[in-house]
């Protein structure tokens, strides 16, 4: 599943890959060509490792937004044994930016909710590029209640630039539904695992992000505001997005340090977009192990630990005494 990524910081790799491909096309290869091929392949791996070990925050954003990055639908196909899609919020519509349904993963029957970005242009337009409307969050909440009722563990895949900013979205209560969804998740009587698989875009991400475990894929990001939005406000120009990206400290490593996430799931060499299958297997292993842990815990204990988990987030100074 290799591809030409189009990421400018991978230009060396693309160059090596085209040289490798050229030699691979030769049906009959000389001894010399074979050894050159081995060299090039090793060089490619070295270079990829070097690049991906040292991604800047802005480069991470580009990888997280990569057009070939696996989306929720891909993981449902690759990591789960079955997916039974459940549409509709039973109120207004069926938001294509939010997928939901029953699924099987190893021995577990679960409910999956996830943002969906869409692969082709047509799909992307139908999914609003992964930006859910209020009906998406209402749909998610309806499935959450269903999961609670039948004690199906809930798995949430987060991959959105943000909740949709539009006229209808405001008319239908975008702020209200995100608030309600967090409110609901904080006390939902079933285990919840949230995984940021690509973009964790502010409130739209957190709207399905309150869980017993929160994990991030290695090259995903999770931020209070998009780097472009932050740059536009604080630097007065979107050109400063790379600077804003550094300042916001939103990579998986940063969030792990801040105690906001429990786990970083490593990506295959050169990012998830290079090997969907391997990424899906890693994700599956994480989910399966975590479901094993969570499903044995008494619900009341689960809820009080979940509460404390978010309760302790934040950093401040506590003055010893105030006059």
């Amino acid at each position: 599943m290799s591809d030409t990524s189009g990421l400018d910081f991978e230009r060396d790799v693309t160059e090596l890959e085209s040289q490798i491909a050229a030699i691979e096309r030769q049906t009959v290869r000389s001894e010399e060509a074979e050894s050159r091929l081995r060299e090039l392949r090793l060089a490619r791996v070295d270079r990829l490792r070097e690049i991906y070990m040292n991604l800047s925050s802005w480069q991470t954003v580009q990888v997280a937004r990569h057009k070939n990055r696996p989306y929720t639908r891909d993981y449902l196909n690759l990591a789960f044994d079955e997916f039974v899609e459940l549409h509709g919020d039973k109120f207004f519509g069926d938001d294509r930016a939010m997928l939901s349904g029953f699924a099987k993963l190893d021995r577990f029957k679960v409910m999956v909710i996830g943002h969906q970005k869409g692969r082709t242009y047509k799909e992307r337009a139908a999914c609003h590029f992964g930006c859910a409307h209020p009906e998406g969050y209402r749909k998610a909440m309806q499935k959450m209640r269903m999961a609670e009722k039948y004690r199906l563990p809930l798995i949430c895949f987060i991959d959105t630039p943000g909740a949709f900013p539009g006229k209808e979205a405001e008319e239908r209560g975008q702020a209200q539904v995100i608030a309600e969804s967090m409110f609901l998740m904080s006390r939902l009587r079933t285990p919840i695992i949230c995984v940021v698989i690509g973009e964790g875009g502010s409130g739209g991400a957190l709207g399905i992000g309150v869980g017993d475990r929160v994990a991030m894929l290695e090259n995903s990001y999770y931020s209070v505001i998009s780097p472009e939005g932050c740059a536009g406000i604080l630097w007065k120009s979107h050109e400063f997005a790379p600077k804003a990206a550094e300042a916001l400290r939103f990579t998986a490593k940063d969030l792990s340090k801040f105690g906001v996430i429990d786990k970083i799931i490593p990506e295959p060499l050169g990012g998830a977009h290079r090997d969907h299958h391997q990424m899906a297997m890693r994700l599956k292993n994480y989910l399966s192990a975590t479901l094993g842990e969570l499903t044995t815990q008494p619900t009341d204990e689960l809820l009080s630990v979940r509460y404390e988990k978010f309760r302790q987030m934040g950093e401040l100074i506590e003055e010893p005494s105030v006059g």
Binding site: M182, D254, F258, V260, M313, G314, E315
Partner: peptide
């Protein structure tokens, strides 16, 4: 935004 993700998480904390 000056407190990054920690600010975002306050939304979840207060809602909980």
């Amino acid at each position: 935004m000056h407190e990054g993700i920690l600010s975002l998480m306050q939304m979840a904390k207060v809602s909980a």
